[in-house]
Amino acid sequence: MTGYLSSIWRLRHFWMALVRIDLRKRYRGTVIGIGWSLLQPIAMTAVLCLVFSQIFGQSIREFAPYLLTGLTFWSFITAVVMQGCQSFFQGESYIRQHPAPLAIYPLRATLSAGFHFLLGFAIALVFVWCVKGFGNLPALVSLVPTFMLLFVVGWSLAVCLGVANVMFQDSQHLIGIVMQMLFYLTPILYKPEMMLDKSPHFAMIFNYNPFAMLLELIRKPLLDGELPSLWAMGASSLFALLVVCAAMLALRCFEKRLIFYL
C-alpha cells in the first residue's frame, strides 16, 4: 500500500500536468475562461433561490449559501463519478505505453473536479462572510479534515467506478440513473426539516445516506458556525473507509488485468 502510494507520488509531475491540461482544455478559446466555473454555480443558485425561497418561504440570505454549498458538493460528486467511469479509457494511450500505477487516472479526474469544488466553496465562503460574518473559528477549521475526507471518498469512488465501467460498460449508464435518484434523496435543494415535517420516515434516508452526512460536515461549520454532529462525522468516516477498501480491492483484483479489457 505505501509502496503503491509512493510510486504514485513519484509520478506527481505527470498527473499534475494532466490535471492542468484538463482545467485549461475546459475553457479553450473562451473569453471569460475560468469565470465560467464561478458563474455556473452562482447562476444556478440565483434561479433556484428565486423559485424555492417562494415555495419554501425561506429567506434568501439563509437559503443562497445553503443551495450553493449543496450544488457545488453535488457537482463534485457527479463529476468524480462520471469522469471516474471514463478515466481509464481517457488514459488508455498512456496505459498502453507505460506501466504506471493505474490509480493516477482516477486521481486526475478527482483533482480537476476538486478544483471546481473549491472554487464554488470559496464563493459560498465569501457570501457567508459578507452576510453573517464568521463566528466560530474551530468549526471552520473542521473543514480541513472534511475536505481531505471528501478527496479520499472522491478518489476511491472514481477508482471503483472506473474499474467497474471497464469490466462492464453499462455501469456508466446505470450509475447515471443512480446519481440522479440520489440527487433528490440528498438534502441539496431542500432542508431536511422541511421534509421531516411532512413525512418523518425520511429521517431514515437522511441518516443513512452517506452523501447527506458528508454534506452536513460541510454545511454545519460554514452556515451555522457549529461543529458537525458526531454521527455525521462517524458515518462519513466509516463510509470513506468502506469505499477506500472497495477501491483497494478493485485495484488488487484488476490492476494488472485491466489492460485486456480496454
Binding site: 513519484r10 509520478l11 509531475h13 505527470f14 500536468a17 494532466l18 491540461i21 485549461r24 482544455k25 479553450r28 494511450s93 498512456y94 498502453r96 505505453q97 507505460h98 504506471a100
Partner: peptide, 21 residues
C-alpha cells in the same frame, strides 16, 4: 500515441518526460 493534442510540443515533451520519471 499518447500525446495531449491540445497542448503544444514543448508541453508534451514535459509530460512524456514526467511519465518516464
Amino acid at each position: 500515441l499518447g500525446f495531449e493534442t491540445d497542448a503544444n510540443g514543448w508541453e508534451n515533451i514535459m509530460y512524456r518526460g514526467y511519465l518516464q520519471g
